[in-house]
Design a protein around this nucleic acid. Structure first.
Lengths: 345, 345
DNA sequence: CTGAAAGCGCTTACAG
DNA sequence: CTGAAAGCGCTTACAG
């Protein structure tokens, strides 16, 4: 910068003003800009941010896994909102590991992100207490904060899971199985709670209203579903409490040639093609809301209280649209549930 | 930092050394670390990077769209490799817009990323010439650089597309249609060229060896496929030159109840379930290679020449595994191609 | 509209 | 092993 100023015959300050489009004599500004071009001036954002009080124009987002579409849609939603106000998003991955998450978060805070969004893999977030008290907006997404009074945006997992069961019960199902990840995962625990409460409300007996938890990946879901469908009194409907479980369950149904009514959590790219009804969590909306909460906090002089935003999961019916008992209960035709596959015909 | 030093009764420099784990009297180090804890010291990464020569420990990646799984897998691959050497990845989106891309790239360069990876939406990259000459490693991914001699990692799109056609021809198909995005998109142009050359080599007449380009999204693919399948002499096989086109084509086949042999570009989450053969571009590997190229350049004192890495697309056969003519040509059974769907039975 | 000075928070030489 | 000085590249007050 000082070289540019010298070349243009002005002070560094004037050069800075000219390059940033502040009030400067137009002729002088021209000269400075020309000199900058000649000298191939590359502004240094680190120095700018440092001098401006050490706050960058980036928001930070830490997710569990970059390749998971749930997180990328969340990121896309956040970035869309940020761009609208001229801000940027920096993404990092925790690899679903608490220690690594803490390291990535620390690095972002050292870089002085304006706000921090976290889909956490950790059980305790006490280490964020100081940063939170200093006024950095922190928003927890999909899973709640523990040990720090930060904002959070969560799905009403219990209600959504209960609604999925109620929908199947209303369609005439009396033999339902739910498949869940390990219930130590917060969302899985909540969803299982919702399923159980709906089982109770419907007066379903424990013998035919089952919950299989600890289903950690596609292969586990495939195996668990195969066991259910090959066992005594196979369920007529499945509630798959995340998207990997849905794929695994569908694979087992294909393997066995035993199509079964299904409602899954999380939309996926071919769900419509396959006629699979899903509870949509709308991660993009979560990202947009996170930006809203953070900006409110940044723009408010007073300290805002801790806020919890709870989103509804939307049930997207597919296949026959509304499920009906007669369509589903005939295990030999099932066309109404999955008309495209022609299963059983 | 100076407060911490004062509290510990040492100089700022010693405090810095202690906090960074450099050679310091252990007792002194203890005192400094205690003081830092007391005073809730938050190291400032901007200042550190500035003083260290203005280079951050982040690599920058600009993609077209955060929510596209192709890009997120690419990012995941790059991050995996970077983490192995203690570096970080900062992601940004160009929204597939050249002007926005340039802005995002400029911001990253101002933040002094150590290296830059771009899946470009622009036609010309002359504005990167200076940065490239200054030695910042720049790697173009999936689409080539123009106007700057930066490294690039590309798929051999022509060969992969030609191989898909050859595979179908070997299975007995003589009436094939290829569906492509607008050929102004570099990858689409290359793939179409590969398809045409394979058509020629196979001696297929232009009347039954078709290319439909300008298919920009799922709905366009659905419509184009419907037109093909309802027209005179519908093709017995389709080559879908990207993943959205594959989904649209499958939807049209379902709508019309006309299953057709298909090979798609890009793997997708339910391709295996559906028994769809794909040309896999392996974006994760692209990300890993980009990190390798960048690190080589950073660690080499001599100036390296411009490098082009060309990857093969791997054909992943699914459904019946190897396609065979008799299995495919009977339009009424098609079980061998899509055994799960039971189409036509 | 412009300039000389000071400083953002840290670290790199250079001495002790 | 430790310290006093200088400076990374910019911008914020404060004067003119």
């Amino acid at each position: 910068l000082s070289d540019v100023a010298a070349a243009a015959g002005v002070s560094a300050k004037t050069a800075s003003r000219a390059l940033n489009g502040h009030a400067v004599n137009p002729e002088t500004a021209q000269r400075v800009i020309a000199a900058a071009g000649q000298l191939r001036f590359r502004p240094n954002g680190l120095a700018r941010d440092l001098r401006r009080g050490g706050v960058s124009s980036s928001f930070g987002l830490v997710v569990g896994e970059l390749a998971n579409p749930f997180y990328s849609e969340l990121a896309a939603g956040a970035e869309r909102s940020l761009r609208a106000v001229g801000l940027e998003l920096t993404m990092g991955s925790s690899e679903e590991d608490a220690a690594h998450e803490q390291q990535v978060v620390r690095t972002m805070l050292e870089r002085r992100v304006q706000a921090l969004f976290v889909v956490t893999a950790a059980q305790d977030h006490g280490y964020l207490q100081l940063e939170h008290q200093l006024g950095t907006p922190i928003v927890f997404l999909d899973r709640p904060a523990r040990g720090v009074a930060a904002d959070s945006i969560l799905l009403d997992n219990r209600a959504a899971a209960a609604r999925a069961v109620e929908q199947l019960v209303a369609s005439g199902h009396r033999n339902i199985a739910a498949l869940a990840d390990a219930t130590t995962v917060w969302t899985a625990g909540e969803r299982v709670a919702g399923v159980r409460s709906a089982y109770d409300s419907a007066g379903l007996g424990a013998r035919l209203a089952r919950v299989i938890s600890g289903v950690g990946d596609i292969q586990a879901a495939r195996a668990a579903t195969a066991r259910l469908l090959s066992g005594a009194a196979p369920p007529t409907a499945l509630v798959c409490l995340n998207n990997r479980i849905t794929l695994g369950a569908l694979t087992a149904m294909r393997d066995l040639g035993m199509p079964t009514a299904i409602i899954g959590f999380d939309d996926f790219d071919s769900a419509e093609l396959l006629g699979i009804s899903v509870v949509n969590q709308n991660p993009g909306r979560m990202g947009e809301l996170a930006v809203e909460l953070a900006l409110e906090r940044l723009n408010s002089s007073a300290a805002l209280p801790q806020r919890h935003v709870v989103l509804d999961g939307t049930l997207i019916p597919r296949g026959s649209g509304e499920l009906s008992a007669s369509e589903i209960m005939d295990r030999r035709t099932h066309r109404a549930v999955h008309p495209w596959t022609g299963w059983g015909s």
